[in-house]
Design a protein around this nucleic acid. Structure first.
Lengths: 341, 341
DNA sequence: CTGAAAGCGCTTACAG
DNA sequence: CTGAAAGCGCTTACAG
């Protein structure tokens, strides 16, 4: 069975390509093509397993029905979950998603944006490295539909969907303070991405609201690429200091889980010796020993907002307003902070 | 700045579209286009930010440089990790990946295959629901490049990459037996996908090799869609039976983690009262209470094999042999099985 | 109701 | 060394 094309159907059925195209695109009725002809075309297409070429269709219509998704790492639980809802929602509207991971490499991210543009995606979703100002400016200038999520460019006016990282971190830090912990360390990342910067602010402001001075030596910023090794030093430093910490805030789920590994290795009791909290979680955080208190990001809402905003921009003819979306996090109290001291 | 096309470059530079196309595709030298002309074209393209249209290119060349990835669920840690390596390796060879989740729905999977074909992907990677014989036959008949992974069609001759599910489960079950456990339950899934079927066999054969009879009431197959509720019943049944179990094999990571949640809720001590093991793991299984012994799938190898086989098929002109790849699992011993009884 | 034709933006024999 | 032209497989005004 050889491949069948539009023109084959037209030839075999003695109708024009126009008619076939119209019918197969559900425009038969509005173009008043006879029911009989429509029937014949549809049957023939089904029988011969006609597969329209979307490349040709896209080229001709100037629309690919594809959206590009660029994230730091599809293997990370947060991004994979958000990607899941984005893909599902996109598919519901007839869009397929092209994805690529930037692995936090700005240059790679730039190439990916180019590559997605090459491929004529109708819109772009980016959780950016925040180091591609130029590309973002380009997209803006071209009025190309895109929405940022998780990380945005604070000094640029774009659509984006983020979580309230500031308030989330403030909440978990205050939770510790409310339980009587006062020497609270923060283990976070170095390159100050916007969410990470916000988390630092939240931590500091929580301390401030309890009239506790933030100590520089309690804040450890580690290199993302080397976090596995660096976190060990960081935790040791906080714990074995002359004024040891009685609680640690971890700025990401992987810092928290790795931090807990280290604490266990050092035979530190959690929460007796130190309480811990995490920004974001892993799905097993509730059965970990001890279960880790965390602020949770609303995965589904993030994905839905992103796709809704993007499709709106793609499909609407009128210029859409640019508006940031800031979603709330949820505090999930478990046992890693213990009881009131 | 308006968009620039091949023909604009040709016009502005007073050369032919042919020359521009050749040069931009790195075929300038082999077509003996003067260095000067090449230089001018490349500079112009860069300066005006020329973005070639891949749709047109693909249409013209009959190749889209895209591969389709269809998996049950991108949000599942196993699939997201494999997808990560597939995407990375694909990108290295210039391919972008289009992905979609089937959510275990055969009909949806069929549509996705169609949709990927529409989009002229050069090849397809599928972790199938195993209920689309027809589509697989179609792909085979058309000699369309594809490779299955995780789940294959045992009665069909196709390329696939799987893990030795049989041996993996045999290993964890024997681990329990070696520690003196004899009443070993199995909590697994109902719709007998190939890997699930193999895991059942592995469990049974392990018992057999220790001359222990497999008891029907110790094997509980639950519905995937309702596993959260059903697992509670399953665990209770095994534990509260008149001949209670002293160990449980969980056939997947999510069954294991949910199973552990239930055990904790029922105040059953692991491993004192029951030992548990899991096929596959979650990244926090080592810090869970107790750390869960599991057989691990070689994520990276799976992804690499899949992409290697696929690209080989796509790019090679000679017919490639069809060959299954069966990878080894690794037993990761932790504390959920305790010591020798 | 239907068809011929132009066009989407590339690539690639082919001729010179 | 270079250019005109056909072709990839569709869609869509336009004319009848």
């Amino acid at each position: 069975m050889k491949k069948v094309y539009l023109k084959d159907i037209a030839n075999d059925l003695n109708v024009s390509k126009t008619a076939v195209s119209l019918v197969l695109n559900d425009k038969g009725d509005e173009n008043k093509i006879s029911q009989d002809t429509q029937q014949r075309i549809i049957e023939y297409a089904k029988k011969h397993n006609y597969i329209p070429n979307q490349l040709a269709r896209g080229l001709s219509r100037g629309k690919s029905e594809t959206i590009g998704l660029i994230i730091p790492n599809i293997s990370d639980t947060f991004y994979s979950k958000v990607s899941g809802v984005i893909e599902r929602k996109a598919k519901e509207q007839g869009y397929t998603v092209l994805f690529s991971s930037s692995y936090e490499d700005p240059e790679k991210e730039g190439e990916l944006i180019q590559s997605m543009l090459n491929r004529q995606v109708d819109g772009l979703i980016i959780a950016s490295t925040q180091k591609n100002q130029k590309e973002i400016d380009f997209l803006k200038k071209e009025k190309f539909p895109f929405v940022l999520f998780d990380r945005h460019y604070p000094n640029k006016d774009t659509d984006y969907v983020v979580v309230d990282n500031y308030l989330g971190t403030k909440k978990i830090t205050e939770h510790l303070l409310n339980l009587g912990r006062e020497q609270i360390g923060l283990i976070t990342l170095k390159p100050a991405l916007e969410p990470i910067a916000q988390r630092l602010l939240g931590y500091n402001d929580a301390l401030k609201s309890f009239n506790i001075e933030s100590r520089k030596e309690y804040i450890i910023e580690i290199e993302r690429e080397a976090y596995l090794e660096e976190i060990e030093k960081a935790v040791s430093k906080l714990i074995l200091s002359s004024t040891p910490v009685d609680a640690i805030v971890f700025a990401t789920h992987y810092l928290a889980s790795q931090g807990l590994r280290v604490l266990k290795k050092l035979n530190i009791n959690v929460p007796q010796d130190v309480a811990i909290v995490s920004f974001d979680e892993l799905s097993a955080f509730d059965i970990v020993e001890p279960p880790i208190t965390a602020v949770i990001q609303p995965i589904k809402e993030i994905g839905c907002s992103v796709i809704e905003i993007l499709l709106n921009k793609i499909e609407s003819t009128v210029q859409q307003d640019i508006k940031p979306t800031v979603l709330k996090t949820k505090l999930e109290i478990r046992e890693s902070c213990g009881q009131l001291l």
